[in-house]
Simulated assay, not measured.
Amino acid sequence: MLFIAATNHNMPLSRFHDGELADGLLKDLGDSIAQRMGLHARYVSVPAKRVADYLASGRADGVCYVLPRWLPGPFNWSQPLMPDSGVLVSRPEAPAVRALSDLANKPVGTVLGYSYSMIDSALGRAFVREDAPSMELNISKIQHGRMQYAIMGRMTAEYLMRSEPQHKLRIDFEFDPFKAQCAFSQKSAIPFGDVQRAIGSLVSDGSIDRLLRHYR
C-alpha cells in the first residue's frame, strides 16, 4: 500500500532522512492502516504541489492529513481523524497579536502553495506572506530571528515548543480548527470499502487516539 509523504511536513507529522519518510505521526498512521488490512505500507516523498496529481493518476494509493478544500480532485475521503487548527507563533520580543486584523501589513511566515483562506478574507492585500518551501524552513527563520511571526498547525507548534523550549516561542492566537482526513485514489487497486473498514476499526478501538497522544 503506497502512501504519499508530502515533503512540506515536519515533526510531529513527518521526519525525513535522506529524502525518505523515517518517522512521525503520518508514518505511524499509514503503517497502522496497512497493517489492519494485512498489507505493508510504503511511502513516496512528493512535493506538496504534486500530491493531487500523484493521487489522481493512481501513482499512489493514499495520503493523510489533508482536507477536500486543500486537495481538490476526484478522491475517496476517510472520516475526519486528526483534530488540529492554525496558530500564529511569535518570537518572545514580538508585539502580541490578538486577532487576525493585528497582522495587517506585518510579514508572516507561510508555506509556498498553501492556501490561508481565512486570513486572505480578513486581510486581503494587507496579508504579507513570507513564503518558504516547507514549515521546517519557517521554523528555522523564526528561531534565528529572521522573522517575528509564522503560521503553522497547533500540533506542530506545540511539538516545537516542547522539544526546543530555549527559543521561548509563544502561540498568540488560534484560528480555523479542523479535523484532517485521508484521501485515497479512485484508481487504486485497493477497494476503498476495505480502507474505510480498516480506518473505522482504528477509530473505534482507540488506536488513532493513542497515536495522537504519543505526539502530544
Rank of each mutant, 00 (worst) to 15 (best):
L2V: 15
T7F: 00
H9I: 07
N10Q: 02
R15V: 01
G30V: 06
Q35S: 10
H40M: 10
Y43V: 04
P47C: 07
K49N: 14
K49P: 02
R59E: 14
C64N: 08
C64Q: 04
L71V: 08
G73Q: 02
W77R: 05
L88K: 08
A99D: 12
L100D: 07
T110L: 06
L112H: 03
M118N: 09
F127V: 01
D131I: 10
D131T: 11
S134G: 02
S134R: 06
I142M: 01
I142F: 04
Q143W: 05
G145H: 12
G145M: 12
G145N: 13
A150S: 10
I151G: 01
T156Q: 13
T156W: 07
T156Y: 02
A157D: 12
A157W: 11
Y159W: 14
L160A: 09
M161Q: 11
R170Q: 15
I171N: 04
I171R: 04
F173N: 03
E174C: 06
P177G: 00
K179D: 03
Q181V: 09
A183T: 07
K187V: 03
I190V: 15
G193S: 14
V195Q: 12
Q196T: 12
Q196N: 04
R197E: 13
R197Y: 02
S201Q: 14
S204Q: 14
D205Q: 08
D205F: 13
D205N: 15
R216Q: 13
